[in-house]
């Protein structure tokens, strides 16, 4: 997989990997998943659901294992456990005096632990490392199809409900007072989160998928005061960092998920420092406006 860099020209840097089937597939899936997670990350960061994203992405683990064991598409198992964990969080929070962040931490670690135990007990062709850390370079044809369907579904729903979801994130009280069903929007957003977590799992794995669900949104948030523009910037930064991450992984033989998230984090860092209005090194003139 590794070729020495000394002889390569910049063009072949970009084109050589494309001669491999697995690389074309990895780049396509990573860019697509990156874009979808990037779009969703706008809602996650504005709603303040970073912890919820972490919880859901970990909680899908036993679902993936059970689905594999039963021969079902893994996305179905992941979806059931993702939504189930959120319902459980809501139930425990309502029925006990334990604070919400504690309940979230408690439920997702419980689910994750269950997943680990199941993996060790159900000996199958599941590679724990693939679930935990993702393996876009080794993604199978059927996994590609599932990821395409999930990505399409999430994108269509987000586009159809984008105004209502934005209003829900901004001012849920107003949304409710004009007769919008905010309970439905709540569970819709959580379902999308579960689906996106499953998609993200393919490229960066369970441990890092929360980064896909918050970092692009956080980066875009520093760059604009317009919601639509934030969506576009989040999608772009997420897709581009996924592509760069896969290339880096190919050329330097580094772990793909880690490389994608690291590029995302670096882009955030650049925005954090140099964003025109909200970067910490912004020019003083923008304060006046």
């Amino acid at each position: 997989m590794i070729s020495l860099l000394s002889s390569a020209s910049p063009i072949s840097w970009l084109l050589d990997p494309l001669s491999h089937d697995f690389m074309r597939r990895a780049l396509m899936v990573s860019a697509l998943v990156g874009g979808v997670c990037g779009l969703l990350s706008c809602y996650m960061t504005l709603k303040g659901w970073a912890l919820m994203g972490d919880a859901v992405s970990h909680a899908v683990m036993p679902g993936v294992v059970v689905a594999y064991a039963l021969g079902l598409p893994f996305s179905i198992g992941a979806f059931v456990f993702g939504v189930g964990s959120v319902a459980l969080i809501g139930f425990v929070k309502q029925k006990s005096r334990v604070k919400e962040d504690t309940v979230i931490g408690l439920v997702f670690t419980g689910f994750f632990a269950l997943g680990l135990v199941l993996v060790s007990k159900i000996r199958s062709n599941i590679d724990l490392m693939h679930i935990l850390f993702g393996s876009p370079l080794g993604i199978s044809g059927s996994d590609v199809n599932q990821t395409l369907i999930i990505s399409g579904l999430v994108t269509v729903i987000l586009l159809l409900f984008r105004r209502d979801l934005m209003l829900y994130c901004f001012d849920a009280t107003h949304a409710r007072s004009i007769g919008i069903n905010t309970g439905l929007l709540h569970y819709l957003l959580l379902s999308l989160l579960s689906l996106a977590a499953v998609a993200g799992l393919q490229t960066v794995g369970i441990i890092l998928v929360v980064a896909m669900l918050i970092t692009p949104g956080a980066t875009a948030y520093l760059l604009t005061d317009r919601f639509d523009r934030m969506n576009v910037l989040a999608i772009l930064s997420s897709s581009i960092s996924s592509i760069i991450g896969v290339y880096l992984s190919y050329w330097f033989d580094i772990e793909t998920g880690g490389s994608i998230v690291l590029v995302q984090t670096l882009i955030f860092l650049v925005a954090f420092l140099f964003a025109p209005r909200y970067g910490i090194l912004k020019s003083n003139s923008s304060i006046a406006s």
């Binding site: 004009i178 948030y221 005061d225 919601f227 523009r229």
Partner: peptide, 23 residues
Amino acid sequence: AQRNQAVAYVPQNEGIDCSFPTS
């Protein structure tokens, strides 16, 4: 009545996320 848009609520300033990217 809500579906008829009869009720409007004007929130306290503290109840709103002012850094939300919207005009």
